[in-house]
Amino acid sequence: MKVKKYITSIVMMTLSLALTVGCSSSETNDKQTNEVNSGEEVVVATSVAVTEILDKLGVKVSGVPTTSYDLPESAKDATEVGSPMNPDMEIIKSLNPTVVVSVDTLGEDYKKTFTQNNIPSEFVNLTNVDGLKETVKTLGERFDKTDKANEILKELEDKEAALSNKEKNDEKVMILFGAPGSVMIGTNKSYVGNLVQICGGNNVFSEGSSSYIQVNMEEIIKANPDKILVMMHALPEETKKTVEQELAKDSWKSINAVKNDKVIYLDTEYFGMSANLKAIEALDILGDILYEQ
């Protein structure tokens, strides 16, 4: 009899525990469902530029890229989801996002990874200032932040209008894109090239089939730029050494920019691969460089 009573007690405890867990799980699922039904978004940003745009719009992010760059204060409690070029899909899926916002320049295979993992995603164009403006407009509409988006757009457009009234600068400029172990030339399809164009600068290699083209010394000597703007991708100290070693070669000694010490290393905080909300400050800095006396 005692044994039967003991077994009955164990069964009742087990059922009670199962019901408790079941209720807890149900409450969690109900909470997630209520959040979606109430319109609350779970947003993941996979690049620094996208994170900054969403912050400026007032959109809360639950996931952010792993980066050495400072992220907005609003993202301090967000989960790191890995590098911008190779985010961790398992971490992203664990956040159960309603949307992941990424840049569209990392190729079709990158986009397919999100589709294959059934992760809702949106890809934005941040290759130039026009793309930045379109991204701000699109995300403003997507998250019902059109008033804030319009404020940002007006600030950008006012800056562009002010610069368009300046007299064009005929001084020849070349953009040198440095990465550890290699250098390339930036065309006007690159973000920095686009900024030079907006400032009225004369990029001697404005044309090109892509944002960056291979260095051709014969063409560089022929163009003979007066200033060289150096943009650096990641590891700035290591990249700077690579560029300095390149410019120390005899083939560069006849170039006006090198002879006259007019090689300018751009601040990575303002001049990167992607257009971002520091574009206005970047245009001011670039204007001072291009129009210095």
Rank of each mutant, 00 (worst) to 15 (best):
G63E: 09
M184Q: 13
M1W: 03
A49S: 03
K189T: 13
V44Y: 00
E157C: 13
D144V: 13
T67F: 01
I185V: 14
N260C: 06
E122Q: 08
T268E: 08
S254T: 14
E218T: 05
N29E: 15
M184C: 06
Y212A: 05
I289K: 14
K249A: 02
I53A: 04
V61T: 08
M231C: 07
L277M: 12
E80L: 02
P180L: 13
V64H: 04
M89A: 13
W252Y: 01
K133Y: 02
V183D: 07
F123L: 00
L176H: 01
D226W: 02
V61E: 04
T20L: 12
K145S: 11
E40K: 15
S164K: 11
E237C: 02
N169S: 11
V61A: 10
K166N: 06
G39Y: 10
Y265N: 00
E73V: 12
D55E: 07
N86A: 13
N188D: 13
E244A: 09
K56M: 08
L57T: 06
I92A: 03
T14G: 09
S121Y: 04
F123V: 00
E167D: 05
K60Y: 02
T268V: 13
I228G: 10
L266A: 01
E246F: 05
V61L: 00
V42E: 09
L290S: 07
N276C: 02
N188A: 12
E35Y: 06
S102G: 03
T115I: 02
S102I: 02
I91L: 10
K4M: 04
S24F: 09
P236G: 05
A75E: 04
M89I: 15
N37M: 14
N29I: 15
Y110V: 10
V64Y: 01
T79Y: 03
S74Y: 00
P97K: 05
L139K: 07
K166C: 00
Y212C: 12
K56V: 12
S251L: 02
T46L: 10
T28G: 04
V124P: 01
E167W: 11
K145P: 11
K2E: 15
E141F: 06
T67C: 10
D158Y: 07
L139F: 15
N256A: 15
C199R: 07
I264L: 05
V173R: 08
G140L: 05
G178E: 09
T79G: 07
L106S: 05
N29Q: 15
V3T: 11
G201L: 08
T67A: 02
V61R: 06
Q32N: 15
E151N: 13
L156S: 11
E73T: 15
L195T: 09
G140I: 11
I53V: 10
V36F: 04
P87I: 05
N117H: 03
S254L: 04
G193I: 08
P87C: 05
D55L: 02
D109V: 12
L266C: 06
S83Q: 13
K172F: 02
N224K: 07
T66Y: 00
G272H: 01
K31E: 14
L176C: 07
K145L: 11
L17C: 08
V3Y: 13
E281Y: 11
V243Y: 10
P65S: 12
V263Y: 07
L126K: 01
V81E: 02
L290T: 03
P65Q: 10
D77P: 03
V129S: 01
I119N: 07
D30A: 13
I255W: 00
S47L: 12
K133P: 03
M85G: 15
I175F: 02
